[in-house]
């Protein structure tokens, strides 16, 4: 009977996994859905930054992403607005578990500037989004804990393994069961106060991939807010790895300039 019991468990194992995945499995799935859809992808981004006094600033850029070996990725960001950063390009070779390689292309100087790795939890182009929101946070950097489950969402609490490396003491993420996409993240400071929120406002299914097409980041202390709107999203366009090199910083590819 014991033998059959084990067999029974083994047969049931996939079903069990589906029914009650661990917190680590949930975040791994969410990470895949949010940052790794398809073999590659591209999108145009319109970013609006609202300051606390009602003023706004606009950014427009195109992003190309390619999944390479392992969990590593390459990104190409081409700026279109505002005018003073037009034609600048930002190249990232993301290394999971290590420092990313980052370069900034300054067209007026024809200069490929290498950027020191630095803190990933700093503002991306002056917005309320952080570099880490754009390229993803390493899963191994936090301890994940499933704190709540509803019919359509999981709530995961994430506590940093190295508390001194980040500005939050913990954050919680709601993950949609149907799409595996993280739909809301709330960050709490050392006093346990909520001070930052990132949320997915609109999700569309594009080429079979549920995709966030509108995202908002809010700094609740400063009273600032940034809205990202994604358009022309495409997956599996067959991007070549050579696109993510100096050659195509000097000569931006049509995929981003169109």
């Amino acid at each position: 009977m014991k033998r059959y019991g084990i067999l029974f468990l083994l047969l049931l194992w996939p079903a069990l996994a589906l029914a009650a995945p661990s917190a680590d499995e949930i975040v791994a799935r969410a990470n895949k859905a949010a940052y790794y859809a398809g073999k590659d992808g591209q999108a145009d981004v319109k970013m609006t930054i609202y300051d606390a006094h009602g003023g706004t600033r606009q950014r427009e850029f195109s992003i190309l992403r390619l999944n390479v070996a392992g969990e590593d990725q390459k990104f190409y960001v081409y700026f279109k607005k505002p005018s003073d950063v037009r034609k600048m390009a930002f190249l990232v070779w993301k290394h999971v578990g290590g420092d990313d390689d980052r370069w900034l292309w300054l067209p007026a100087l024809n200069l490929k500037k290498r950027i020191a790795p630095g803190d990933k939890r700093t503002s991306f182009v002056g917005s309320d989004f952080f570099y880490e929101d754009v390229s993803g946070r390493g899963l191994e950097e936090d301890v994940h804990q499933l704190v709540k489950e509803t019919d359509d969402q999981w709530l995961i609490k994430n506590t940093p393994k190295d508390p001194d490396s980040v500005e939050f003491s913990w954050y919680q993420v709601w993950i949609d069961k149907a799409t595996s996409l993280p739909v809301k993240a709330e960050y709490f400071d050392k006093e346990g106060k909520l001070y930052r929120r990132v949320s997915a406002e609109k999700i569309e299914t594009i080429q079979g991939h549920p995709t966030v097409v509108e995202a908002v980041a809010e700094d609740l202390l400063a009273g600032t807010r940034t809205v990202n709107r994604f358009s022309k999203v495409k997956y599996d366009i067959g991007l070549k790895e050579r696109l993510f090199t100096e050659r195509f910083l000097r000569r931006p590819p049509r995929e981003v300039t169109r």
């Binding site: 020191a116 790795p117 630095g118 803190d119 700093t122 503002s123």
Partner: peptide
């Protein structure tokens, strides 16, 4: 040699 020394300080 170049590096970050805290938030938005290089």
């Amino acid at each position: 040699y170049e590096r970050d020394l805290g938030r938005d300080l290089t």
